[in-house]
C-alpha cells in the first residue's frame, strides 16, 4: 500500500526525519509512536505531500509520489486529519462536509456562471456523499447544528468524515484522540476499526498508549527522527530499545 524508502527531511542542519524505511499494508491499522519531537508529524507531512522530503522515496500503490503536491496526493486517495480540528465553525456540520468531495468533481467557473447540468449533478453528488459520511461516523442526528456548538469529540468525528468524503484508500490521522476523555477515545477507536472494515487503510499518530496497543496491527516507533523499532504491539512493547527511548525522555512515558 505505502512503501517508504530511506525517507529523510532536514531543516537547516537538523534531521527531523532521518532515513526511515517502512511498509504499511492495506486494510490495516498502522500506528506511529514516539516521544515529542520525534518527527512523527513531519513524517505525516511528507507522506501527505505538505512538504517535499530531502531524500528518499514514497511509493503509494506502486506509484512514486515523492515530492508530489498535496492536492494531487489527495486525489490519488490519501486523506488526512490534523492535530487541531479545522472546520468552518459558523456553518452547519453537514455544510462543512460538502466540500470534501469537491476533488472528485470537474465543474469550473464557467459551469458556475451558467449553472450547468454538470454543476448541479456534481453538487447533488457532493451533498449525498456528505450525508453518507455523516451517517458513517454516526452524526446524522446533528448534521443541522452549527459546528461551533458541537462537542470536541463530535468535531473529531466531523474531521474524520471530511477526510472520508474525499473517497480515500489511506487515511492519515494525526492524534485523533487528542483532547478527549477515555470513554470518547474508546468510541473513536471503534470508529477507526469500522473504517478499516470498510476497506480504508489507516495510519495514525497517537500518544494514548492503551488505545494504540489495543488498536494497531503494526507500530512504528520514531525517536529523534529515526525508526528505532517496528512490529506488532506485542513486539514493540517488549522491545528494550523502545523502553529505553521512552524512559530516556520523561515526556509521554506515562501516557
Amino acid at each position: 500500500m505505502l512503501k517508504i524508502n530511506n525517507l529523510t527531511k532536514r531543516f537547516g542542519g537538523l534531521a527531523a526525519v532521518n532515513n526511515v524505511s517502512i511498509e504499511f499494508e492495506a486494510n490495516k491499522i498502522n500506528a506511529i509512536i514516539g516521544p515529542n519531537g520525534a518527527g512523527k508529524s513531519t513524517f505525516f507531512n511528507l507522506v501527505a505531500g505538505a512538504m517535499p522530503p530531502t531524500e528518499g522515496t514514497i511509493e503509494y500503490q506502486g506509484m512514486n509520489i515523492t515530492g508530489m503536491a498535496c492536492d494531487r496526493i489527495a486525489r490519488l486517495g490519501i486523506a488526512r486529519t490534523f492535530q487541531t480540528t479545522m472546520l468552518f465553525e459558523e456553518s452547519t456540520v453537514l455544510d462543512n462536509l460538502i466540500v470534501g468531495h469537491r476533488l472528485r468533481t470537474q465543474s469550473r467557473l464557467w459551469d458556475v456562471i451558467i449553472n450547468s447540468r454538470r454543476l448541479r449533478d456534481e453538487e447533488a453528488k457532493c451533498r449525498a456523499r456528505a450525508q453518507e459520511v455523516l451517517d458513517f461516523v454516526g452524526l446524522s442526528h446533528i448534521g443541522h447544528r452549527i459546528t461551533a456548538d458541537i462537542s470536541q469529540e463530535e468535531k473529531k468525528r466531523v474531521a474524520f468524515a471530511l477526510a472520508l468524503a474525499t473517497d480515500p484508500e489511506l487515511v492519515l490521522l494525526d492524534e485523533p484522540a487528542g483532547g478527549i476523555n477515555p470513554e470518547e477515545t474508546e468510541n473513536l477507536a471503534g470508529l477507526i476499526r469500522k473504517m478499516v472494515d470498510h476497506g480504508v487503510t489507516v495510519c495514525l499518530i497517537e500518544h494514548k498508549m492503551d488505545m494504540i496497543m489495543s488498536l494497531a496491527d503494526k507500530i512504528m516507533v520514531l525517536d529523534h527522527g529515526e525508526k528505532i523499532a517496528e512490529g506488532t504491539p506485542e513486539e514493540v512493547r517488549n522491545n528494550p530499545v523502545v523502553i529505553e527511548a521512552y524512559l530516556g525522555s520523561d515526556e509521554d512515558a506515562a501516557a
Binding site: 501527505a48 505531500g49 505538505a50 503536491a69 498535496c70 492536492d71 494531487r72 489527495a74 486525489r75 486523506a79 488526512r80 490534523f82 479545522m86 472546520l87 468552518f88 460538502i98 466540500v99 470534501g100 469537491r102 476533488l103 468533481t105 465543474s107 469550473r108 467557473l109 459551469d111 458556475v112 454543476l119 456534481e122 453538487e123 457532493c126 471530511l162 477526510a163 474525499t166
Partner: peptide, 24 residues
C-alpha cells in the same frame, strides 16, 4: 457553488484545503 466552497475551505486553512485535494 462548489467553487465557493473550495474558496471557503482555503479560508479555513491552506493545509486543510490542500489535504482535500483543492489546488491552492
Amino acid at each position: 457553488s462548489l467553487l465557493g466552497r473550495s474558496f471557503r475551505a482555503i479560508r479555513i486553512s491552506d493545509d486543510l484545503a490542500a489535504s482535500l485535494g483543492i489546488n491552492l
